[in-house]
Design a protein around this nucleic acid. Structure first.
Lengths: 344, 344
DNA sequence: TTGTATGCGTTATCAC
DNA sequence: GTGATAACGCATACAA
């Protein structure tokens, strides 16, 4: 019977509810060892568990953190969650996880649900391009950390953790395009309104501009594999037309896209690095076993989650102390690791 | 200010809290259109959000479901969660996700936390080998579904959803071992007390017994890659000794293990299907791009999650109606898909 | 060192 | 149609 309450314990142990409450919260200071043991025994005997809802109502604090990710089936999101969990769980917080499916509408509903749960803080991988969508959180001065993506008008007093998307792409693009490549083709998916892929594309675009190489961007959106194959073939085949020499550098801007890219290349009979150079963002090393490996730009989603959760903890501590949580807000830029492989 | 309460709305709108409560819960039947509109406006103006904790306390129902997975960074777990989420979220349930790290101790703590949150139901990928560990849930008659793994003494009145591990392995083993393979070596990780891998291994063992072929099991546990390489080399190299002919069939019993297996094979300079046959369980098709693809035994974790969540919903409906949730308990065995590839 | 009494925000039972 | 009021289980200010 999990229905025992603090009153039952008090009655059975012959003490008052206050004393039991103190016991439950570890306030043994004002309590004789005798009563302490008696309460302990009763708690065990009745298999008592405090009701979180009653506690929350009374203390105005839930010890729950809300997390919204874009797509939990993406390895990025699951590693992000793992990092968050590793920090929050030992600190006593429980996590309510939401999957926005990269949809602004669903995200809106999920934020509302999280707010009504009175979460003590939120970590969001945002879908909306304007911060307006998260205003209800910031006006309530609720601890908040945005991860991975940034809204266009991201207020500086809100914490954010993201990879160093632009610089890593600009730098790799500059390095590779200064070689024999004649052009770069970047592949993106970009289903949500805001995405790290856009910034990554910009990095490659700037690099190509500086080196006066051709730059093409293919955005897959909802298209299927055959559509992608057609685009890739077109971009690879135009060599003759413009009379330029050298191979094409193909860049997949997110992990799951690499998958579809490989399918297209196989379908088209294209082999790397013979026919083209291939580079991809990815957060998991499986591609090292594809041929002789694929050149990767690798993020560390787990570290991102840990960083986000750490800052959130800080904010929640401030909030608990009655201070403005945004006083300890901070922006973090995480390095992107280059994992060389003979695919370029 | 998200601090508005039902009383504030009542005062501002000039009605009683009862009426506001009725409005919040959609009971428009007993309410004049005029008051309804007036309340609506006030709710919007004050940006009112009902406090979930107060609601929970009063109704004795949380609309929260607890989910415990073994390792969220494993694709299996994240797809499982996605399936669960797809069913539960539209039904109005929020999900508290816990990651047990395949540890019985951590799992125990997490169950306690979930119980104190007064979750309306639980879905667990169990770590303990005896159901004893989950007794506190079943004695409270809380809706419960066990997924993927089964405790040794799993009570029949508790719902369970798992893949058809034994038959799929026995069947594939029988098929392949009736060919020119001289022996089968199965690789498992098995860190938790209970695991689907054990049942899978049994499937291959029985098949090998029936066909009088040699059967060897290698359990990685916490060992590292070089240890694995040594084991594999030993098993592949014993051909001369026993004078038998034919290749060895190597079976990786879980997705993440395939990764380490490939690393070992590469290190040993072993090539499939030339030097050996390779088969693996996995829940994601990335391996089709490794060489010419790897023969896969593929589960459908998302379907497993959906099935588990559907049954949990049924149970929760029963519980809400005051009936025994375990009256609608059921066992589901999900098919394992064979994805042929020239690695055998 | 221990106990009494009040209120957190909501729903539900009854009365009007 | 509408409203007063009593719980739900817990934590704490205030007594003793």
């Amino acid at each position: 019977m999990s229905k025992a309450t603090i009153a039952d314990i008090a009655r059975e142990a012959g003490v008052s509810v206050t004393t039991v409450s103190r016991f439950i919260n570890g306030n043994y200071r004002k309590m004789s060892p005798a009563t302490r043991l008696r309460i302990q025994a009763t708690v065990n005997r009745l298999d008592y568990t405090p009701r979180a809802s009653a506690r929350q109502l009374r203390r105005g604090q839930s010890m729950i953190v809300g997390v919204i990710v874009g797509d939990i089936s993406n390895v990025f999101s699951s590693l992000l969650f793992k990092g968050i969990y590793n920090v929050l769980q030992p600190s006593g917080y429980d996590i309510m996880l939401m999957n926005s499916n990269n949809s602004v509408d669903q995200e809106k509903d999920e934020i509302e649900r999280l707010l009504s749960q009175q979460v003590d803080g939120l970590i969001i991988q945002p879908n909306a391009c304007y911060f307006e969508a998260y205003k209800s959180i910031s006006t309530a001065h609720l601890p908040l950390v945005m991860v991975d993506r940034l809204t266009g008008d991201q207020p500086h007093q809100i914490s954010q953790v993201a990879s160093d998307n632009f610089d890593s792409c600009f730098s790799l693009g500059s390095k590779l395009l200064s070689g024999p490549y004649r052009k770069v083709v970047v592949l993106s998916r970009v289903l949500s309104q805001v995405s790290a892929q856009t910034i990554r594309a910009e990095g490659f675009e700037r690099a190509s501009q500086a080196l006066k190489k051709k730059y093409v961007r293919i955005e897959m959106g909802d298209h299927d594999g055959s559509w992608l194959s057609k685009q890739i073939r077109k971009e690879i085949a135009d060599m003759a037309e413009d009379g330029s020499t050298g191979k094409t550098l193909l860049v997949s801007l997110m992990g799951p896209l690499l998958f579809e890219t490989l399918a297209s290349l196989r379908e088209l009979g294209l082999v790397f690095p013979r026919d083209l150079g291939l580079v991809s963002f990815d957060d998991w090393d499986w591609s090292q076993y594809v041929e002789n490996g694929i050149y990767l730009l690798e993020q560390d989603p787990k570290a991102m989650g840990e960083q986000a959760a750490s800052n959130l903890c800080l904010q929640m501590k401030e909030a608990k102390a009655g201070r403005d949580p945004y006083g300890v807000s901070k922006s973090y830029s995480l390095p992107v690791k280059n994992v060389p492989a003979p695919s370029v």
